[in-house]
Amino acid sequence: MKKRELAALIDVSFTLNRGERIAIVGESGAGKSILGFSIVNLISKPGYIESGSIKLENKELTTMNLRQLQEVRGKRIAMIFQDPMMTLNPVLTIGNQLVETIRSHTNISYKDARNIAIEKLHNVQIASPEKRFDQYPHELSGGMRQRVIIASVLLLNPDIIIADEPTTALDVTIQAEILQLLLTICQDNGVALVLISHDLGVVSKVAERTLVMYAGHIVEEGPTLEIINDPQHPYTQGLLNALPQMTIPGQRLNQIQGSMPSLAERPSGCAFHPRCPYATQKCKQEQPQFIYSGVSSVACFIIEDMLNEFTDTDKEAL
């Protein structure tokens, strides 16, 4: 068996402003989750960050040692994971798992920490939080557990919450509730949110700005509403068309032809070109650069050409 190093993220760059809610969208395998985990250096082994820089208020996170990282994790940047059934430790009580977070970052007494935890459980609309406090995770439903996780994330009033597919594993009815809860909590506390999702419908309800990822690259970035109303990149268009809401009832669902390439067989040029209906010879050879289309920033030669044509005709008119 040969061992090869493969890059999961290439040239990904973005900024997050205080209190801003952004979304990272893409199919599974696009590198969204790795992006989320790499922010607090939690990529599962043997993965690692080869180069690049991640800054929190000018403090470099990638070069921090474990102790410094522990100060950031949970306190400044907190994470919500995909599957609430797997996220809580089955052998520790809910209260135990909440209190330990507070106590490992501050010098609050157990009693006060308990009060804070119960208050936060109350904030995420859990009924009878005192009772829940002493229960084990398996005694709670999935939606309830995700609420507990959100409560645990809020304990230390972090600056950023990274939510990796927070509603994917939940029932549809509960999805909306949890999403609404997440939104109100971010708005009320002024917390910045990085929402990772494959579902543009989910994203549109919460995020102000959206980044679309494909095969380790960001292909489009811009305000969520603009992107949804007027998608520029062919991939974003495909994603939007694939939403069931976009299909006329009775017709087949629109889908993007083909599937996401694996890390090992990423094509040259624009990674999307084998699936792109507009691909040209240039797309197969060169990597497109970001350009502002008037709606969003896009990395696509088609858009670039169209814009160039546009400006050329303008010039001719002059």
Binding site: L42, F81, T101, S104
Partner: peptide, 18 residues
């Protein structure tokens, strides 16, 4: 150590010992 809840515990900033 590969499980999700351990990763979540790391993301909470707990000490390695804990």
């Amino acid at each position: 150590l590969q499980s999700e809840y351990i990763r979540f515990a790391w993301s909470k900033g707990l000490s390695a010992r804990r």
